[in-house]
């Protein structure tokens, strides 16, 4: 309807001072990207424990430390993005539980606390006062940390859903995309960390997770790209930023190719050739491309004027 009226009215805004366009910029992209790797590694550790526990010894320490570091990167950028970072403690003393930001902050804090314990156990294995068998305790704790990793991964989708102004971000889709981002980057990270410590069978397993995550995420993005604009005019207007030939259209396709299409092709090649270099390249591309994909999807809804 709007297009017809626009042609008839020739309406042009001649005075308005809308909000500056992008409020959540690359700091928030860093937040989502680092969190995906952090929680994704935990998912992959848990899967490895269930599939082939004997290979855990090669990656327990490195994976939990990298996950812990990435979660701290996530928290650091979350804090740095606040306009009043020194009031962060208000979230813990004046929590408002309808907010996904509050729920996420609390859960992420507990998650990082548990990860710290697990990392400390692994580093001070021989002198650990908490337990006589650090590996066994680590594996027991891993179950609970994995459970917690699910909502920690998903809460950002909750924030996006609560951002009523941004029609593009729908809860069911974003939830799936958050989980897929975690499995994509988590499998890529553990392939890079595991290296020769992982057997061919395990590498195949994580390569499959990487390839399938890329495929599913790509399908969802393409579905939104093609069909999203058939439901709501706001979504049509937002998707126009990635359908034209502007900078976000270029970034969108770079992201899709680097994060999803190339890793899918490379994983398929790896399964034929068994070349570790190809799998390593797929993992690096997936992690790098994920940043671009997340950034474009974060920014484009903010470009639409709300008034």
């Amino acid at each position: 309807m709007i297009h017809e009226t626009l042609a008839a009215t020739n309406a042009v805004v001649t005075l308005d001072v809308p909000l500056p366009d992008v409020f959540w910029g690359w700091f928030v992209t860093m937040n989502m990207w680092a969190k995906s790797i952090g929680t994704g590694l935990v998912f992959m550790l848990f899967l490895l424990l269930r599939k082939n526990a004997s290979e855990m010894s090669g990656v327990r320490t490195s994976a939990i430390i990298v996950s812990f570091v990435m979660m701290n990167v996530f928290l650091l950028f979350t804090l740095a993005d606040l306009h009043q970072p020194f009031r962060m403690w208000h979230i813990f003393f004046y929590p408002h539980w309808t907010s996904a930001i509050t729920v996420g902050a609390w859960m992420a804090t507990v998650f990082v606390g548990l990860e710290f314990l697990m990392a400390a156990m692994m580093i001070r294995k021989d002198k650990c006062l908490l337990t006589s068998d650090a590996n066994a305790t680590f594996d027991k704790l891993l179950f609970w940390v994995t459970l917690l990793a699910i909502p920690v991964t998903l809460y950002t989708a909750g924030i996006m859903a609560e951002a009523t102004a941004r029609e593009l971000w729908q809860m069911p889709t974003e939830s799936v995309q958050m989980i897929l981002a975690a499995t994509l980057s988590g499998s890529a990270a553990i392939i890079l960390l595991g290296g020769s410590k992982l057997s061919d069978e395990t590498k195949n397993f994580f390569a499959s997770i990487l390839g399938l995550s890329a495929l599913l995420a790509f399908i969802i993005y393409m579905s939104e790209y093609i069909f999203g604009s058939m439901k709501a005019e706001e979504v049509t207007a937002i998707l126009a930023y990635v359908k034209g030939d502007g900078e976000y259209a270029t970034m969108f396709w770079i992201g899709q190719w680097v994060a999803y299409i190339l890793p899918m092709i490379l994983v398929a090649l790896y399964r034929v050739s068994k070349s570790n270099s190809i799998l390593t390249l797929a993992a690096i591309l997936a992690i790098a491309g994920l940043w671009v994909v997340k950034h474009v999807w974060l920014v484009i809804p903010q470009l639409l004027p709300l008034s």
Binding site: P18, L19, F23, W24, D81, L82, H83, Q84, P85, R87, M88, H90, I91, Y94, S99, I101, I159, E162, A163, T164, A165, R166, Q302, P305, L306, S307
Partner: peptide, 20 residues
């Protein structure tokens, strides 16, 4: 005095009525 400046409200308001 309580606001932490997360801009969540800016992202949520469909009317662009909130600013920092």
């Amino acid at each position: 005095e309580r606001c932490i400046g997360c801009a969540g409200c800016v992202m949520a308001c469909p009317y662009g009525a909130i600013y920092i």
